[in-house]
């Protein structure tokens, strides 16, 4: 039918169909609000799996204990038992396969994180044994005198 009203109408309908087809093709299947409203509910389910599959690097002290029970026991008796192995020895990822990958931190800076003197009233920092790093043997490594697994000099 030739009609100056219907012709643009067909064009408009075709455009809408083209838009719907394009939308169907380009919007990922997992895109949706899934349970909440449009304000807060954008939800991409496939991305949740991406995050779940992210690689774990820090394995925890029980993992270290499986092979290094001696070291685990020695530190368990000291005040440093609250510190995880990997805080000083580096993340255990790939360690059994490639022992060199472990980056052990032996720097003074590591010990000073807790033991540099900061006399702050009201802070738990105040309760820890502390030294002034500029006066307390500044050119020596801490581990020269203090065993990190047995930090009390007497023990």
């Amino acid at each position: 039918m030739k009609n100056h009203v219907l012709r643009p109408l067909w064009v408009a309908i075709l455009l809408v169909i083209a838009l719907l087809v394009a939308r169907k093709l380009y919007v990922p299947a997992d895109f949706g609000i899934n349970g909440r409203n449009f304000t807060y509910g954008y939800y991409r389910k496939a991305s949740v799996n991406d995050w779940k599959e992210f690689k774990v690097k820090y394995k925890g002290r029980q993992y270290c204990k499986e092979c290094h029970e001696e070291n685990f026991d020695s530190i368990s008796k000291s005040k440093h038992r609250i510190i995880q192995c990997e805080n000083c020895h580096g993340p255990a990822i790939d360690h059994p396969d490639n022992p060199e990958a472990l980056e052990i931190d032996r720097s003074r800076g590591l010990c000073l994180r807790c033991h540099a003197d900061l006399p702050y009233p009201g802070s738990h920092r105040n309760d820890l044994p502390a030294i002034d790093p500029e006066e307390h043997n500044p050119d020596k490594a801490c581990a020269d005198c203090h065993n990190p697994h047995k930090p009390d000099l007497e023990g």
């Binding site: 349970g35 991406d50 995050w51």
Partner: peptide, 28 residues
């Protein structure tokens, strides 16, 4: 619970999971 960051995202790349963690879809 009402993440402002999710609300403003123009492409819906950031979202809240069912257990309440707000994540970013790096591909989107």
């Amino acid at each position: 619970d009402n993440p402002a960051c999710v609300q403003v995202c123009p492409v819906g790349a950031t979202y809240q999971t069912a257990d309440g963690v707000t994540l970013v879809d790096r591909k989107w």
